[in-house]
Design a protein around this nucleic acid. Sequence first.
DNA 1: TGCGGTGAATTTTTT
DNA 2: ATTCACCGCA
Length: 777
Amino acid sequence: MSSFDENDAFEGASLSARAMAALRPEADYLNELNPAQREAVELLDGPILMLAGAGTGKTKALTTRIAHLLNTGRARPNEILAVTFTNKAAREMKERVGRLLGQPAEGMPWLGTFHSICVKLLRRHAELAGLKSNFTILDTDDQLRLLKQLVQAANIDDKRWPARMLAGIIDDWKNRALTPDKVPTADAGAYNNKGVELYAQYQTRLRELNAVDFGDLLLHMVTIFQTHPDVLEQYQRWFRYILVDEYQDTNIAQYLWLRLLAGGHKNICCVGDDDQSIYGWRGAEVGNILRFEKDFPGAHVVRLEQNYRSTPHILAAASNVIRGNESRLGKELWTDKPEGEKVRLIGHWDGEEEARWIGEEIEAMTGGTRGMRPFGLGEIGILVRTTNQIEAFADRFMSIGLPYQIIGPRDDDKLERRDAHAYLKVVASRDNDLALERILNTPKRGLGDKARQAIQQCARSNGLSLFEGARLSVETKLLKGKGAAELPKLITDLDRWAGIASRQEVPLRELAEMVLDESGYTEMWQNAKTPDAISRLENLKSLMERLEKYETLVEYLEYLELRDANDAADSSQKVTIMTLHAAKGLEFPAVFLPGWEDGLFPSQRSMDESGLKGLEEERRLAYVGITRAEEVCTISFAANRRVFGQWQNAMPSRFIDELPEDHVEVLTPPGLYGGGQMSAGIEARAAQANVYNSPGWKRMQARQGQYGMSQPRESRNTVIDATAVASFTLGERVFHQKFGYGGVVGIEGDKVEVEFDKAGTKKVVAQYLSAKDDVPF
DNA sequence: TGCGGTGAATTTTTT
DNA sequence: ATTCACCGCA
């Protein structure tokens, strides 16, 4: 039976001694807390739920609690289990605990994300899950590739039942801590009745590959704890105190994991905010936090409601929006900050206009010509609902030379990086089947589907890894055609690179360049005709630069696995653009919230798929967005927006109707046509509020222009919507998404007859045409 | 196997 | 619009 390594027991112990000596006097840090925070820190024993609203000093309370646990001698640093969701949060917490202790908190080995802690635990108990302790962790790509093979083997029509769907179903089961044998009969019909069976096969395959996916990290540990009480007890005793951040985002597996670990002493402190639960679509269960008092009878509930971040107007707006949600534990944020600016609201003609206005507004705000203090670019954040909204701002800011940074999908997540990493993984360990599979035919080597299956078959029947199977299949002349010539070369190359790597003959960067060049991978992109090839090569280049920071390949791959250095946003003088999800936990003196239109925000899909629950989650997202702002919060919407290449008109978000008018200032867009109507519109809304209170009515008003959209200030390629059909004239040049350019030859109601240059004469709905008077004949 | 054409899908994504 | 997957052909 495995037990704690000696190392663990001592890890942290040495710091403990040093830290103790350096600790600040107790009263010192406790006096810096408000009464609620202090209660949350001082109630050390038993279950406690800290309901911490946005900006109420939750991290401060949490870190002080850890310091207090150490200071009072309740636990040594390595006896505290502190769980976060992101590496960033873990890092910040470590840093702040260290600051409180006056020592770096490196001695807290169990402060980390759910996943990193589970990796640690699972490596130690891998055999109990049928794994070896050096198991690999699949990324989403590997997972999908594996599933596709299983789906194919099961003769399932991938068209009607995409493997992606199966991946989603399995993820969902894992989030609910369901192993294949525990999937309820209600779910038996999933994926054309084959879901459970394929899930079981998938788990078997993973075990054969000595691999796990992200969901498994939690699932395996929960299973181990459930089936090996002795192991569980060990950890129950070891982790004397448990702290959990962002509890509202835990899924069922995480919840069970925590409940098992806290089962003995019940010294568990969960911190969260039900109003900021925005990951329901990923399996998070708000119910976990709503149920806390039932799960842990006698639990203390502490509410942190004093907000140190935002002005009263901003808080009032946020509170009024979130009030629309039914299932809440209920909190009311307050602040003693001075009143400040009202929340600002503005409507625009279209998305481009919105981006243009925000760019200009930022320039005005940084120049201090808005009657406010001048803001630094680094103090401004733009928070959008979907990633594709980011582009409009990036484009606009690029062209006016406004410095910006995007926090979004990381470079490491891009295709070319994952390919490059797969190469490096295979070089480090040629028996990494999944990585090898990825690069086998990238670039094209004539080793496609057929060849791969043959090699896999060969490997499996001989009990070999894919790589050794490939070696054998060369010897037995298994393959024909191009692949037969290319495979031996690939094998000898990999052997050679692996040798160079293990002997550390050349610096890591040089090794990587050698691998990517000689394998033909770099060349593949150099020859690629697609426009993104250049950025992909750039991305590879910056990868090479990063590699210079590492001595050995193994060292780099370890770093990669932990992915700790979440290329944090530099806090320099740049406007930050990101999604609302990415913004959780952040704050900015000035925040822009564009794109508040029904369908986009709240997202149509969210509402379609999850109904009221979905809408409430979107509303929480709105709440998160508003509460990111410290001083100025500017919300905007556009009447027209291009969605998936099609122009669509939209109504202002229903959340806009939920903003309290007393705390909102409606801005008038600049330009000739927009003037004045905006404020008239909101006056009218105020007057009619009691009679016509339905969102629909209000939005209808908005649609009729009473919000006062600004018109486009210059002739652009705006699509003419149905109301503007008259603007087409005979002979006018137009553009159609599908048929290209043409000239108008007839008009009938909302249909326009167009003689297209390439596609002949067709009658099309005016809505799909755009004026193209700037295109020469 | 590899291409070029066609059609369908397209949020959010801490690990 | 853009990407991705699939189909049919060389």
